[in-house]
Every structure is written in structure tokens, then in C-alpha cells.
Amino acid sequence: MDGVLTVAFLKAAIIAGTPLLFATVGEIITEKVGNLNLGVEGMMLMGAVIGFQVAHVTSNPLLALIAAALAGAIGALIFAFLTVSLRANQVVTGLALTIFGTGFSSFMGKGLVGIKLSDEFSASFTSIKIPGLGDIPVIGEILFNHDILVYLGYLTAILIGLYMYNTRKGLNLRAVGENPAAADAASVRITAYKYGHILLGGALCGLGGAYLSLVQVPVWQENITAGRGWIAVALVIFAAWNPYKALIGSYFFGGLDIIGFRLQGTGIQISQYFVDMLPYLMTIFVLVIVSLKKDRKNAPPKALSEPYFREER
């Protein structure tokens, strides 16, 4: 595997894993508050198309990113309203959101297909070498010589991790997902917590989609996420609902995503289409492994996908 596991490959794996990381962390925080939102793919697509549209019109990277996060959050708001306030079935509502987001992005992106973002815009996302860390041999090049969003990805995963495990609010958030009745009795505002974190999760999914359309690809193509939202949902299980582990999972799957190009480079005779199956096959494999070694530490939040109704306590 010497020909494959090069510095350039591992660096590219980090880039390919970044959209997955944003989406996975977003879904972790959503599920931790007790809501299983299967609309990740839809929210990513909404963020991707709106971010691209804004970038195309304004050439302003910050505006584009904010718009993408908002688009994801709006998708999440639909989900939150239906599942939290109206107690609709979370699985079906999430699927509906994915169908909606897919339709929405293909609708909005119809006139954008094939358009490339300006060089001026893309210049905002050139690699920045972090002084000091970036000079470490090998590791510095792989981890600390990237565009600003990759760093934002590291930061997001770490901050969300600190928030979840080291703050009062984070404790409340986990309580809502594990035992909402108890949290309610301790006067945690269930509805506010649910809405807040579902929206935050959606915004992160939107950002993940935008990373694809603004930085990784920078040309609009229909269905640009190609199932990455679903891989993110699986990664949540792989990471055992832990944002730090999501870092490892996302970059690992990022690597699988691009391994095809590398294998071709080394002259290994295997059809591109089989290599393309790898991330999906691996996802199934990982899920089976995770379900084989079930233990309390890796279990989902207890009240996941159950609506909370105070009068039914």
C-alpha cells in the first residue's frame, strides 16, 4: 500500500472528510437531544445549493457560508416543528426532509449546473499553513496546511465535544436525550433545548453541504452530496455519538471516498465502479461491527426518536 498511503493522499482524505465531519457532528448533537433526523442529506443539499447561489451572485465567502448554514437550519426547523411540536414520526419526517431538500436543490440549482465559482472567490479558500504546527514533518503537511474551513471543522468537533461533556448546558442536553421526564422535572426547558440543538445540527449539515459545493468541487452539479448525508448518519453510530470520535470516522471515510483515484494511479486493475462501492460497503461493515459489540458506552440516547409529551409521563 506504499503507493496509496502517501502524504498527499492523507491530506486529500482530510479534505474529503470535512463535509462528513460537519454533518456528523450536526447529527450527533441532534440525536443527543433525542431526535433522529434522517434529513441530513436533504439539509446538506439545501446548504450546498443556497451557499453556491449566494457565492455565485455576491462572491462573498462569509455571506455564502452564513446563507448555507441558515438554509440547513431552515430545513431543520421544519423537522423540529413537525417532530417536537407536532410529535410526528421522526423517521418519516426525516425522509420527507431529504426528499424535500433533494427536490429543492435540484430546483434551485437548475440554472447553475456546470457553473464554476470565480477564482477570486476560490482564493478565499486557499491553504493556510499554520505557523509552527504546519512545520512538523509529515503530520504538519497532512493536518495543518489546509483551507480555513478544514480548521473550522476541527474547531467545531472539539468545541461541540467540550460543550457536550464539560458544561452545564451540555449535561442538560444529554439529559433531555436520555430521560426527558427527569430533565423536565429538573426544570430543563425541553422544547427550547430540542429546537435549539436541532437547528444547530441543521446549520452544521448546511455547512457540510456548502463545503462540497464551495470548496471541494466548486462547480455546481445535481445531487452533489451523492449519499454523503447518509454516510454521516451511519458515522454517528460509528462514532458512538461522540464528536471527538467523529473526527476519526469522518476522515477515514473521506479517505475511502477518494481511494479510487489513488488506486488507478498505482495501476491496480479494478473497476472504478467497484471502488466507488467501497464507502457504502464499509458503512454496512462498520454498522455490523458496532452492532456486534453492543455495550452501554456505545448505546444511543435512551429517548432517541420518542416524542416527549409531559402528560404521558
Partner: peptide, 26 residues
Amino acid sequence: ISAASASIIQAMILFFVLGSDFFTKY
């Protein structure tokens, strides 16, 4: 108008029907 509008309308109907279920129970 893009044919994708049909899937948006479909998802919209699904959203509303999913939401309406609430009013049959509460």
C-alpha cells in the same frame, strides 16, 4: 418550471399530512 417542483410539492404534502396527524390525536 423545473420538473423538480413536483417533488417539492410532494414533500410539502407529506409535511402537512405528517403534521396533521397531531390534530387527530390531540
